[in-house]
């Protein structure tokens, strides 16, 4: 299958600081891809360039064969959804209000939410098992539920590509795992997920492919078991790890504590 999103020779800098340096990556439809790299390695910037929120200084992003900058924001919004890190500063809209925001790209200036819009939103909430939160204020549900609401909004948007910036950030362990397994389930239906993460384990668990970034450049791109190794993790983070297979159904990335000292009992 040909690539859905292609990032070609993309460079980007904030003022004088080079954040992306000749980045070449592509994403196929239905893939779950994790972007892994230290703070400031350019992961979030790459996501924003792919969303059209930032214009690259050099290079070009293509979406379904067309240069991204020639696709109207409204049309793009029907294909690509952005799930930002959880935020708290907003007004206390109900969860349904937030999910319904996903219908924005289908509305003209004067139109109001139709019963069809509400059905689509209800179906999305049903799918993510947050239907019972419909009338609760978005600001009063848990971080995990808020993240699910944003994913429901992306479904409501009709998007098939989900771009997520550290989706598990700020969630407790249970919610992290529930969110990741939810992502896996949605991916089975052919949706594409591109997400940044700080956890090699999460990348191993969820991804079909892992992209490692360092100082604005892609340093590795491939299957999780090929990209997440002792050597690459040390190169990225200066931490010694063991990557070990567990019960034959997965791998975990485990720090080797002795290298940086453990508190003695």
């Amino acid at each position: 299958m040909s690539a859905l999103i292609t990032v070609e020779q993309v460079g980007f800098s904030y003022r004088k600081r080079q954040v992306l340096n000749r980045v070449n990556v592509s994403f196929r439809s239905g893939e779950v891809v994790s972007l892994l790299g230290p703070n400031g390695s350019g992961k979030t910037t790459l996501l924003k360039v792919m969303l059209g929120l930032l214009q690259p200084d050099t290079g070009e992003v293509f979406f379904a064969g067309r240069a991204l900058k020639t696709v109207s924001p409204k049309v793009l919004a029907r294909r690509i959804a952005y799930v930002p890190q959880i935020h708290r500063e907003a007004f206390a809209y109900t969860v349904e209000d937030v999910v319904l925001m996903g219908r924005m790209p289908y509305h003209t200036f004067f139109s109001t939410n139709s019963p069809v819009d509400r059905e689509i939103a209800a179906a999305a909430m049903e799918k993510l098992e947050i239907a019972h939160l419909r009338d609760r204020p978005y600001t009063e549900v848990s971080g995990g539920e808020r993240q699910l609401a944003l994913i429901a909004r992306s479904l409501t948007q009709g998007a098939d590509v989900f771009i997520m910036d550290e989706p598990v950030n700020g969630l407790d362990y249970g919610n992290q795992m529930r969110l990741l397994s939810g992502i896996r389930n949605l991916a089975k239906e052919g949706l594409t997920f591109i997400m940044t993460t700080h956890f090699p384990d999460h990348a191993l668990m969820t991804s079909d492919r892992v992209i490692l970034m360092q100082q604005g450049a892609v340093v590795a791109d491939g299957l999780p078991e090929e990209t997440i190794t002792r050597e690459t993790i040390f190169a990225l983070y200066r931490i010694d790890v063991d990557v070990v297979a567990v019960n034959g159904n997965g791998r975990v990335c485990m720090p080797v504590w002795s290298t940086y000292g453990r508190a003695k009992n």
Binding site: L51, G52, S72, K74, A77, A81, Y82, H87, E89, M104
Partner: peptide, 10 residues
């Protein structure tokens, strides 16, 4: 909800 979210919603 924020400028970038709004933009990503078209």
């Amino acid at each position: 909800m924020g400028e970038e979210e709004a933009q990503s919603l078209g």
